[in-house]
Design a binder for these strands. Structure first.
Lengths: 207, 207
DNA sequence: TAGATTGTTAATCGATTAACAATC
DNA sequence: TAGATTGTTAATCGATTAACAATC
């Protein structure tokens, strides 16, 4: 069962449903949600049926019910403790990011090689890199955000894997090689921008 | 011609090729590149043929040649001037981000409603929101990074569109509605993390 | 030449869209 | 009941993989 683009869409539906709820709605129809999420109504229904999200014929979908089920799928019953490695610009921004809402994760520790950053006060405790392994193992951390400089990426990635991390959100532009049981999601800011520029440029060519 | 996942991969190949070049290599084979980029050799060849990237039978691909052609595709002959709207944590991080290399874009102006941020010194000039339209039009800006708080997202998005922006990199968790000729690429940090957590959790269930 | 590798065509696979029966 | 909407099956579309001929 390959679920990939779906999973992103499910999170997108969640965002839309939260918005609907805030606006005071209780029910949503597949075409409402599709419209709001930017996909077809059929796509919504298909996605929902894949994840067992049920509506009522004629009555549409109950927003609260959907949110509960989606939160179940994403395990919002427990808080996933994650760590952040690298307190550069991006790392610090993530640590101070205020727009997370109704999340199922919590950044419980940050790591950096720079001793001055370790001393500084942040919202979460900052440790020296040497403490990484023991912290991860003691707290059974499975998820890490990697925001170190590119030159350090491979080495730190190996450290994370050998400490027992199973998922890495990789903000570096470096392709990481990991064992099969370690998931890497790449978020290359430069590539995101170049992709957007490409799309805009090629659209204008055809006009 | 739908090119979508491809375009991301092409940028990924570029990253790998730059790495190979740095290591002193001059030639690459499809299986080298595939290995490094995490895709099959067939995928590499297929992608290349789609974009007219040529190799030599038996001889593989010339790294420099490939880089030149890929840079052509992404219009690295000109610098795309882009703006940043919202100087919160993420916005400031992007402004100070140092890991962009061989880019074809340049953040030439930033905008915020907070007057104290407008006064502060950054690497690029910071303007009040009221100056947005005139700046975009005077400088023919087509691309914007949107990093404002969620509540402001829709309004600022409309401002961007009416000023003439054609591509938005949307860091807010808000679904933006824009005319057909305006491309929006979403980068929702919360959803990226929740997706990763989901993948890790569901992988471990199956073991 | 024999071997290795590209480039492309054909086959497969998966995801999206369309259609429609079920039903509230 | 008639109309509207879900849920699912079938049809289409596109992307990936496999196969292999061309050729250096």
């Amino acid at each position: 069962m390959t679920v990939n683009r779906n999973i992103k869409r499910l999170l997108q539906y969640r965002t839309c449903l939260l918005r609907f709820k805030n606006l005071g709605f209780e029910k949503a129809f597949s075409y409402n949600l599709g419209e709001e999420a930017g996909v077809s109504a059929e796509q919504v229904r298909k996605d929902f049926s894949l994840y067992g999200l049920k509506g009522n014929k004629k009555g549409g979908y109950d927003i609260n019910e959907l949110l509960v089920t989606i939160n179940d799928i994403f395990k919002h019953d427990k808080t996933h403790e994650i760590i952040l490695v690298g307190l550069g610009n991006i790392g610090q921004a993530l640590l101070q990011y205020k727009n997370f809402t109704e999340i199922n994760f919590n950044i419980v520790g940050a790591f950096d090689i720079d001793p001055s950053k370790v001393k500084k006060k942040y919202a979460v405790p900052v440790y020296a890199m040497e403490k990484l392994k023991i912290f991860v193992q003691a707290n059974k951390i499975k998820i890490a955000i990697l925001a170190v400089p590119p030159v350090a990426a491979k080495e730190v990635c190996n450290d994370l894997v050998s400490a027992g991390i199973k998922g890495i959100l990789n903000f570096t532009p470096v392709v990481l090689k990991t064992p099969d049981d370690v998931v890497v999601n790449n978020l290359d800011l430069q590539n995101e921008l170049e992709e957007l520029i490409y799309k805009v440029d090629s659209k204008n060519e055809n006009d």
